[in-house]
């Protein structure tokens, strides 16, 4: 009896693992098809007189991009200053404090600016996207669009997709500028270096590749935030509680995807 029970438990466990895997695969497939469908409507929609709403794209850009400028600037400055503080501290062990400019320039542009911007936008806009689509799904607004002959992906997803793909790299660039500037301020005070000398050294250190390494990454993050937000919002079940659940899940999954992708990208692009 005991052995059948443990056998059952094992079978049950295996079934749950299998189901979770299948659900994950189905989710990945859905995300992939979402990207393809978005691109279809963006580029081929006008041919069938189904254009993406320009007004909605700008509204989303304001919301996702312009609205996030203060917080991105603040975080960028904090990270830049933090890098300067930690850099000077750790380099002082070797008496090489002046080398800190390299550290700030490279880690800000290649790593911290895209990562922090991505995480911030995931929390700010990925969650909003999931919640909005979740509520619309529950209120049958998505069904209403479908039966009106309005494709929900074209109408709702593509504007957010374009806005994110444009705005996340733009915000990353802003974060770079502010972060490097704030790092420079601290270095100037601590090491008695002029801002002009700091800027010169930074420009000398950085190549276009370093800058683009971060910008490309942020572009991938934007795609991840969109598809994860949309996939979660569209899969909502169970009323208001369900909306809360998918919103949380969208943020957690986005951040997870961003950090893991960051690691993979760094590995592939620096070797």
């Amino acid at each position: 009896m005991a052995s059948t029970q443990s056998g059952n438990a094992a079978a049950h466990f295996a079934e749950r693992v299998g189901r979770a895997w299948l659900a994950g695969l189905a989710g990945l497939g859905y995300c992939g098809s979402l990207v393809v469908e978005s691109l279809y409507w963006l580029f081929l929609g006008p041919r069938v007189k189904q254009t993406v709403r320009v007004g909605a794209v700008f509204a989303q850009m304001m919301e996702i991009g312009i609205g996030a400028i203060p917080i991105v600037a603040l975080l960028g400055a904090a990270i830049g200053a933090m890098l300067a503080i930690q850099g000077i501290y750790s380099l002082s062990i070797f008496g090489a404090e002046s080398r800190v400019v390299f550290g700030i320039a490279l880690s800000m542009t290649r790593e911290f600016a895209p990562l922090i911007t991505g995480i911030l936008v995931a929390g700010r806009s990925g969650s909003a996207l999931a919640a909005r689509l979740g509520i619309m799904t529950i209120n049958q607004e998505i069904d209403a669009l479908t039966v009106m002959g309005i494709n929900p992906v074209r109408y709702l997803v593509v504007p957010a997709f374009i806005a994110l793909v444009v705005m996340v790299p733009a915000l990353t660039f802003l974060s770079n500028v502010v972060g490097l500037w704030a790092g420079g301020l601290y270095v100037g005070i601590e090491l008695d270096m002029s801002m002009a000398a700091y800027v010169d050294q930074t420009i000398e250190t950085l190549s276009v590749d370093d800058l683009m390494h971060g910008i490309w990454k942020s572009l991938i993050f934007a795609v991840l935030i969109t598809v994860i937000g949309v996939a979660n919002g569209a899969s909502v079940t169970g009323g208001a509680e369900g909306v809360g659940r998918v919103t949380t899940r969208a943020v957690v999954q986005s951040i997870m995807a961003i950090v893991v992708t960051d690691m993979i990208f760094a590995f592939v692009a620096t070797r």
Partner: peptide, 20 residues
Amino acid sequence: EKLELHKRIGVAFQGGALFS
């Protein structure tokens, strides 16, 4: 074709499903 067909039907949902 499905989109075209949907233009020729109307639906009044239970909760209205108006865009809020």
